[in-house]
Design a protein around this nucleic acid. Sequence first.
DNA 1: CGAAATATGTCAATATGGCTGACGTAAATA
DNA 2: TATTTACGTCAGCCATATTGACATATTTCG
Lengths: 166, 166
Amino acid sequence: MGAEGGTGPVTAPVTIADKPEIVLIELLFYAYRDFVSDPDAVLLRYDFGRAHHRVLHFVDRHPGMRVADLLDILKITKQSLGRVLKELIDTGFIEQVPGPVDRRQRLLYPTEKGRALSARLTEPQARRIGAALAALDPAGRAGAERFLRLMIDADERDKVSRLISR
Amino acid sequence: MGAEGGTGPVTAPVTIADKPEIVLIELLFYAYRDFVSDPDAVLLRYDFGRAHHRVLHFVDRHPGMRVADLLDILKITKQSLGRVLKELIDTGFIEQVPGPVDRRQRLLYPTEKGRALSARLTEPQARRIGAALAALDPAGRAGAERFLRLMIDADERDKVSRLISR
DNA sequence: CGAAATATGTCAATATGGCTGACGTAAATA
DNA sequence: TATTTACGTCAGCCATATTGACATATTTCG
């Protein structure tokens, strides 16, 4: 093979002919990059970051959820969650209520204020999604949803499906 | 209306009937969460993180790209890129070559070693994508791809399309 | 009942990956 | 020649994550 034996620069691009899956790999990157940036402007006004958004979203979506459930969704440690959650509680967006049956639990609820902020953060993302779905036919919409479900770890899919569909 | 005038906990969940777009919003979160974690195990062995992966991927995909192009894809500052890029260069995964026409540029190329690592990092993600696509019919596949393209900022779509399709 | 397990919180140190601002250099361009 | 461009770098800081250790209720189990 050629004279370039060294570990010099490789000039041949990786094409989608070589690896067709690259298209979706990269689309996921670009899509997520832009999609998650939507609420940044609003978050800034509250001195919050994306971590606050994620926490508030899931607490708002599943009022009364346990801390452990939230950790399992976010896949972070309780120490990481701690700070962000504390700030959301201190500023009155989330409230903790002792579990009525198991009093070790501290069930998480949004306040009215929390619900309102969550809705405001969801708004631009929902608009983006809505516009995309409107541009697709039913088969396309179903494909998008199925594809994303299949991106989830196989052993998490049922749990996620249950969370989403309620 | 009721007696609960205070800003007490809100107990009503947000349902997908209220906001159908939430399904896709959450699926994007769960999908990305698991999808990007695939290469972590391999990255660990090289003392690299996800930032290294992203940089190596795009340099490998577009050999000879300019630093400015990379910044525009990643949407980070040159200072952030700096550290990660330096480590990839110091460890021999990426090489810089002065631009032949504009010598201010430092064109980025993967080394053979860099190409190999990039392929290894891509592998598990490509498997995940491949399995998902295999489970969809052509209309579903097209829908997934179109949906993700529509998640990208409108004024970025053409640029991204050009990047991907070469 | 007492021991063990569970749910949660917290303190401390550290890593990663981002940011802003300031400044420097070489090369292209006006 | 003056300005702009492409890139790099130093310094400090912020957000978000980690590991490990330890504390406190409360529930469950033997």
